[in-house]
């Protein structure tokens, strides 16, 4: 694993490639479209983990001391797959099969032989419980090397089961559990504060017995710093992000929660990403 000072730049470059892949994957779905907004918002969070931090051996996907990654907000699979490609877990060329018939890369992750996918997801509010069970198992096995990263959306945290899991994680002192919450402030029907106001959101995690760190979810240095956290409690990384980040007409626009791209918009999106590179 490279030293942290040396990985900021590689993570940022990986993030740019992941965004380009997301746009291409969406365009590849034709009229079906894909979950653009919430995939683009978590690109740096995934790049920081997969490029800079993860314990994972692509040659041995069942390595006991691997980190377990659970994409509880399964609709952001389109960001996860390219991040896995950056870590060499899958080949980049497979990304073009996204959402195609017979592909391993479905619209939500499933247990279909893809290495590094611990659980299927898609039904929101379930990943943190799976993380709780996984951490209990790691403790029983005296595996202190692995960590369990659960990626949640802020809208997903409307689900009561998230908070059942949060309470039990603190109760059992599961300090290998890291919840990464992508706070992009928009869910299907609009701004999260308008649909179901959960504020004060950040205090809730601490009140449930977690350590929590509030960061800028697009600042790689802050992300890498958060991933270094060690403590006695489960840890929540509360990452403020921009839905649709990186493409002007998608940013902070709820219409791009799930959308397709015309050829014109596809080209514009790629041009904007190229200009940023």
């Amino acid at each position: 694993m490279p030293k942290e000072d040396n990985i900021i730049k590689p993570c940022e470059e990986a993030a740019k490639r992941i965004r380009r892949n997301i746009v291409q994957m969406t365009y590849g779905t034709g009229n079906a479209g894909a979950h653009l907004g919430g995939s683009l918002s978590m690109v740096e969070l995934l790049a920081g983990l997969y490029v800079g931090n993860i314990r994972f051996d692509p040659e041995n996907a069942e390595w006991e001391e691997r980190d377990r990654v659970i994409l509880s907000k399964g609709h952001a699979a389109m960001a996860l797959y390219p991040a896995m490609a950056e870590a060499g877990i899958i080949e980049e060329k497979e990304l073009s099969t996204f959402k195609k018939d017979g592909s391993r890369l479905g619209g939500h992750p499933s247990l279909n032989g893809l290495p590094g996918i611990e659980f299927a997801s898609g039904s929101l509010g379930q990943g943190l419980s799976l993380g709780v069970g996984t951490c209990l198992a790691l403790k029983r096995k005296r595996n202190t090397a692995s960590r369990v990263f659960v990626f949640l959306g802020d809208g997903e945290c409307d689900e009561g089961s998230v908070w059942e899991a949060a309470a039990s994680a603190a109760h059992y002192g599961l300090n290998q559990l890291v919840a990464v919450v992508d706070i992009n402030s928009i869910q299907y029907d609009g701004y999260t504060d308008d649909v179901l106001n959960m504020s004060p959101f950040e205090n809730k995690w601490r009140d449930f017995g977690w350590d929590a760190s509030v960061i800028d979810g697009h600042n790689v240095a802050e992300i890498l710093n958060a991933y270094k956290h060690k403590g006695d409690k489960p840890f929540a990384i509360l990452a403020h992000t921009v839905k649709g980040k990186g493409i002007s007409f998608m940013e902070d626009n709820w219409k791009y929660h799930n959308a397709s791209l015309t050829e014109e918009l596809y080209k514009q999106a790629l041009e904007e990403l190229e200009a940023a590179i």
Partner: peptide, 25 residues
Amino acid sequence: LYNFGIAEQNMIGAAAGLAKEGFIP
């Protein structure tokens, strides 16, 4: 023995996590 309190949804998820790691919940 794990007592999850009156929180059945979480209990099923946690059981699934334990099962995935080779335990028999």
